[in-house]
Design a protein around this nucleic acid. Sequence first.
DNA 1: AAATAATTAGAACATTTGTTCTAAAATATA
DNA 2: TATATTTTAGAACAAATGTTCTAATTATTT
Lengths: 206, 206
Amino acid sequence: MKTKERILNTALKLFNREGVDAVTVRHIAAKMNISHGNLCYHYPNKNLVIFDLYLCLVKEFNELMAGLQKTAIDLSLVLASNNHSFDTFYKYRFLFLDFTHIMRENPAIKKHYRQLVKIRKEQFAWLISKLVWSGDFKKEALPGQYDSLLEQVFIIADFWLPSSEILFEGKETDRIPHYRNLMQALIVPILTPKGMKKFIQLSNQN
Amino acid sequence: MKTKERILNTALKLFNREGVDAVTVRHIAAKMNISHGNLCYHYPNKNLVIFDLYLCLVKEFNELMAGLQKTAIDLSLVLASNNHSFDTFYKYRFLFLDFTHIMRENPAIKKHYRQLVKIRKEQFAWLISKLVWSGDFKKEALPGQYDSLLEQVFIIADFWLPSSEILFEGKETDRIPHYRNLMQALIVPILTPKGMKKFIQLSNQN
DNA sequence: AAATAATTAGAACATTTGTTCTAAAATATA
DNA sequence: TATATTTTAGAACAAATGTTCTAATTATTT
């Protein structure tokens, strides 16, 4: 494994465990038994490490979204993707645990992320329209309701991890499932009877 | 005004503007034209300043909640309190903009907040049951639905500010109303026809 | 008024961190 | 093999920050 790659792996591990602020270039270097001078040769500063890890996350998500666009859309597929995405969040959790901080110190990430969200929103809006059309989702009760829903989805997606860090009291293994359910619960009230039937069936399969 | 009070005011202003991390005891002292030695005499470290500001926030919220418990519960009252609370969030926004950070570095706040959330959840659960009883809210479509709703409420309450910092693109004056609406939109799908009628009426009054 | 306590300014210290630099070592290339 | 390039270690520097200490000043109490 090349040094650059090892740096990313080690940094991810340390960032996730200690929090991005507590970890310095010196810590990362020490952990992998290289000098911090060497690390700075590959990554002149910590933000560049973070940026590369952010790009890894984006890449994994792009692959996930690609799977949602080719196929005929179905509620089960949407829920499965939701589940998968929570694992990905967790893998890069340090990014979310200090989301604001990272975005503030890393304008490149912020800019990229803002652009990304616009694309994602369109993709999700398209998904919703499909599910309304297929009769699993109700039509909007009020204009703009589903725009709001999307924003709610994004806030919970971006911030369930910090919230859980502060408030979640269950076992560590229940953490991801708990917040998965919380996200799914956002769509429960907009399910048609037909959609609800499917939803319950899918829930019982797990 | 006593020095301690002036420190809190100045710190709040600076924290909100620059972010809690960018502000040091020296900055606060400089801003109010006292020595940082003096500031450390009153507040040996920054965390104690933050803690006192946190207590101010809690106090304001307690007063707000008190108003929600005496009176006969009504949808209009709940929405009005929601609106008010967003102003309070905004007043102490630095706390939310670096929520995770502050909680991590300030175990006293974290402990207090966890306790507080438990109480708040009971209070809100009681509110919901009242509104179900009065026929403005539907009954749960699935068991645990309203527990999830409450958690969604808390995540959005705690993190709408950091999210807006990254994603909101409107005018500054629209920021609070926008996220108020987002919070209200959480209850739209659980309104009964009767509740919906009230809700629309109340929305038009603004 | 005298004595005591509280407040203040500013110096001093230790630590941490990012960053740059130099020279040695390893690797690749010709 | 000789030369050039890449990689590495570790020293060195500068800036920031929290924290403590001392002495002076101000306010309060007796």
